[in-house]
C-alpha cells in the first residue's frame, strides 16, 4: 500500500510499474482531472490540505479498503497547490484477483477521500476566488458503504 500527498505532477504509467502482487488478475486505476467550469473561465484550482492528517486519513481509508476487499495492492496519490484545468489532481489504483473487488474498492476509495480526507478546493477565475462547497451527494454517497463510518 502506498499513499502519496504531493505538489508535483504524477505519471500514471510510472506509478503503475510494479503495481500489484503475485496472483493479481485485475488492476483498476482512476484519475481525477481539474475540470473547467461550464463557461470555461476557470484560471486555476488551489488545493489546501492539512499536512500530517492528510497522509494519516488517506492511509486509514486505504487500510479500510484492504480490510473489506481482498486487494493485492492499493495506491492513492493526491496533489495540492495550484493546478490548472486539465491537470491530473489525484489517482487511485487497486489490484485484486478478479475485477469486481478492484472496481468496488476504487469506488470506495474515491467516495471516502472526497469527504473524509482533509483537502479544500478553491476555484480561481477572472472574477475572483471561491471555495468549493461540499456537496450533499458526496456525503450521501458514503451511505452506500455502511456500516463504514
Amino acid at each position: 500500500m502506498r499513499v502519496k500527498v504531493q505538489e508535483a505532477p504524477f505519471d500514471v504509467a510510472d506509478e503503475m510499474r510494479g503495481f500489484g502482487a503475485p496472483g493479481t488478475g485485475a488492476i483498476v486505476t482512476f484519475t481525477g482531472v481539474v475540470r473547467n467550469s461550464d463557461s470555461g473561465n476557470l484560471t486555476a484550482m488551489e488545493i489546501e490540505h492539512y499536512p500530517g492528517m492528510t497522509e494519516a486519513a488517506l492511509a486509514q481509508i486505504a487500510t479500510r479498503a484492504q480490510e473489506r476487499w481482498q486487494l493485492g495492492d492499493v495506491l492513492v496519490i493526491h496533489r495540492h497547490g495550484r493546478l490548472i484545468p486539465g491537470e491530473q489532481i489525484m489517482m487511485v489504483a487497486t489490484a485484486s484477483r478478479h475485477r469486481k473487488a478492484a472496481f468496488e474498492a476504487a469506488d470506495f476509495l474515491m467516495d471516502y477521500l472526497k469527504s473524509r480526507a482533509p483537502f479544500w478546493k478553491k476555484e480561481i477565475t477572472a472574477d475572483g476566488a471561491e471555495w468549493v462547497a461540499a456537496r450533499d451527494e458526496d456525503e450521501a454517497a458514503l451511505d452506500r458503504w455502511s456500516p463504514e463510518l
Binding site: 493526491h78 489525484m90 483537502f119 479544500w120 471555495w131 462547497a133 461540499a134 458526496d138
Partner: peptide, 10 residues
C-alpha cells in the same frame, strides 16, 4: 485542535 469547512477532496 483544527477547525475547517467540510472537506472537498477528490
Amino acid at each position: 485542535v483544527a477547525f475547517f469547512p467540510p472537506m472537498t477532496g477528490g
